[in-house]
């Protein structure tokens, strides 16, 4: 049995499930809306709604989106619910720990990474990262700097509104709350890299031709989309990225890099639950099948 934590509208999960169906390998998809329970019966039993699965029958786990959790706000009382929550967290951590003992993609712990720690570790692994600093006041520099959210989110929703926090190139001095300033790196192309258990699939994104997407390619130009084609990383860069992923205890992730006009590889960030469909489809890598094969074996 393969256990998959995911969401109803995740097309990548659906594509992987298609291959598992072809192979005739049983799998169960757990959604965030499911009600989960755990008991020690039969050396560990999971209940997903009415469905019962023994831990010993699970041979692979894919933490695509989410992890084992117990929903509880039984008392509608802050203190009582807090007590219950603290109690449940112990159970959740234990079950997730057990689930991570088998072959897995992603992990319960690795759903989020700290950008500042990632950058420090990237430097320690020998990767080039753009100069950056956390400051309140920004003084006009000789070099161009950009400001972006330290959590990596470019937008969030509030009620019926979407608040977009663009990546901005700075020309003046500014004062603000503590902000993440990063030296602007000229790019020949961007790289989006999918990493899975020591293997790399890379895509080059040619965005420089298009002024609309120069700082952040996620601002799509639908008329003339950026060119996305397969790319091979130099082995020295792969070794440094492997070092980073291992030091972060990540077995999978989506990595962003820049290749500068002088062909230097610059590391930007890693997302442990990044979309791989956006690398797989344009490059015809068929990562959905790679994942299904990994989970099946």
């Amino acid at each position: 049995m393969i256990l998959i934590f995911s969401e109803v509208n995740d097309l990548s999960t659906l594509a992987v499930a298609g291959y598992l169906d072809d192979y005739g390998v049983p799998y169960t998809v757990v959604l965030k809306t499911d009600t989960l329970r755990y008991t020690d019966a039969d050396k560990g039993t999971l209940y997903i709604g009415e469905n019962k699965i023994c831990l010993k029958d699970i041979h692979a786990v894919w933490f695509r989106r989410g992890k084992f959790f117990i929903r509880s706000n039984a008392f509608k009382d802050r203190e009582l619910d807090l007590y219950l929550y603290e109690n449940n967290v112990i159970i959740e951590d234990y079950v997730n720990y057990k689930l991570e003992q088998v072959k897995s993609i992603g992990s319960a712990a690795g759903l989020h990474v700290n950008k500042l720690i990632v950058l420090e570790k990237a430097k320690a692994c020998g990767l080039t990262v753009p100069d950056y600093c956390l400051e309140h006041d920004f003084q006009q520099q000789d070099a161009t700097y950009i400001v972006k959210g330290v959590n990596g989110n470019t937008h969030f929703n509030s009620d019926q509104l979407r608040i977009i926090l663009p990546v901005v190139k700075l020309n003046d001095s500014h004062s603000s709350g503590l902000s993440f300033f990063q030296r602007y790196t000229e790019k020949k192309y961007e790289l989006r890299i999918f990493y899975l258990h020591g293997r790399f699939w890379s895509m080059a994104i040619f965005s420089q031709n298009d002024p609309q997407t120069t700082t952040d390619f996620r601002k799509y130009n639908k008329e003339r989309p950026n060119r996305n084609i397969p790319y091979t990383l130099p082995t020295a860069i792969e070794a440094k990225l492997t070092c980073l992923m291992e030091s972060l205890s990540l077995n999978t992730g989506s990595i962003d890099m820049i290749v500068t006009p002088s062909l230097e590889h610059v590391f930007l960030e890693v997302n442990p639950v990044g979309q791989f469909g956006m690398v797989s489809l344009p490059c015809n890598y068929n990562l959905e099948k790679e994942i299904a094969d990994f989970l099946k074996s």
Partner: peptide, 20 residues
């Protein structure tokens, strides 16, 4: 709260989700 929020809030764009 300019002095508490990161600088990129000074450049934020707000759109209505319904329109999206």
């Amino acid at each position: 709260h300019k002095d508490q929020l990161p600088l990129n809030f000074q450049f934020m764009e707000i759109i209505e989700l319904e329109a999206e």
